[in-house]
Amino acid sequence: MSDHALFKRVAIGTIAVWLLLFAFAPNLMVVIASFLTRGESEFLVWTPTTDAYARMLDPLYLHVFWNSFYLSAMTTLLCLVIGYPFAYLIARANPAVRPYLLLLVIIPFWTSSLVRTYAMIVILNTNGLLNTLLQSLGLIDEPLELLYTDGAVIAGLVYTLLPFMVLPLYAAIEKLDWRLVEAARDLGARKVRTFASVIIPLTSPGIVAGCMLVFLPGLGMFYVADFLGGSKTTLIGNLIQRQFLSARDWPFGSAASVTLTIVMGLMIGLYLLAAKRANAKVEV
């Protein structure tokens, strides 16, 4: 066996074993747990049932899912609205400056998102930086209630997830074939029309990728809602965590987790489909 083949085997084998042990096996355990029963003194009793899934259908839990989707969707929309012009400007900037502008987008990643979320608390709280600034400028008399609102949660999510929107958009816009834009102009399309009919469709893979990269993590970042929203909203993440740590209801927690995975899987499927279509269109 040549060194190269050996290296290949070892490398692939290591990753396969790793995935099997630390990704596949735990997930399998979660799936199995979701079909078991909880006991009075045991976390799991070997009585197969779909009871946990039946309980998921309670309007209460649909509502929890809805809350999470709502927050995540609002965040995605805001990230797109803020991120698109931003990515566009970077992509159109002088090529010598671009790497530095991108670096600025990435720098916040050097700090843990948990720490940055705490920083948001310092800025937004009643006697925080923002309120103090506005008061000293004479713009407001009483401190505004900024922290522990839905607005604060969405602001925190947007702040944390914006780079995930900007980077794929930048990649898509930078790749854009500007000759097509010029052609549209030559054919008499105005700016708005050019943007809507040419630029957006051509950058749609970037838009879809950015939206997925923001939306999916947004569903799971319940700690942002806990810190900035004062834990007033139960999100899927909280629900799952509480089933394991407080409610001692592993089957239900597992079922919620499996449901979330399936929903995310479906969305990634949709993304792949959309990306395929977009590519197909471009090639036509």
Partner: peptide, 10 residues
């Protein structure tokens, strides 16, 4: 308790 707790927050 946990179920009611989720319901309160929802």
């Amino acid at each position: 308790y946990e179920k009611y707790w989720s319901e309160l927050k929802v």
